[in-house]
């Protein structure tokens, strides 16, 4: 599960970047901004879920509380 997560996130980032560039060329600034925001939110959700898993594991392993 580890390796493909990084490639998934990098892929989303690159695709969003290319899409926003294309949209900027087509004089659609707002949609470019919306696409970037959407990509940001998608990746943020993945990251938050991953960090949540890490914190739960650390909590259980170290017996934090």
């Amino acid at each position: 599960m580890e390796i493909d997560l990084i490639f998934k996130i990098a892929g989303v980032g690159i695709i969003v970047a290319v899409l926003s560039l294309v949209l900027k060329r087509a004089e659609r600034e707002e949609q470019a901004m919306m696409t970037t925001l959407a990509g940001l939110i998608v990746v943020l959700m993945i990251i938050i879920q991953e960090i949540g898993n890490l914190f739960n594991t650390v909590k259980s392993v170290f017996g934090l509380w």
Binding site: A10, G13, V16, A17, V18
Partner: peptide, 12 residues
């Protein structure tokens, strides 16, 4: 392209 995504990769 966009700095935030780079940060996300390093956090991941």
């Amino acid at each position: 392209y966009n700095k935030e995504q780079a940060l996300f990769v390093s956090i991941a």
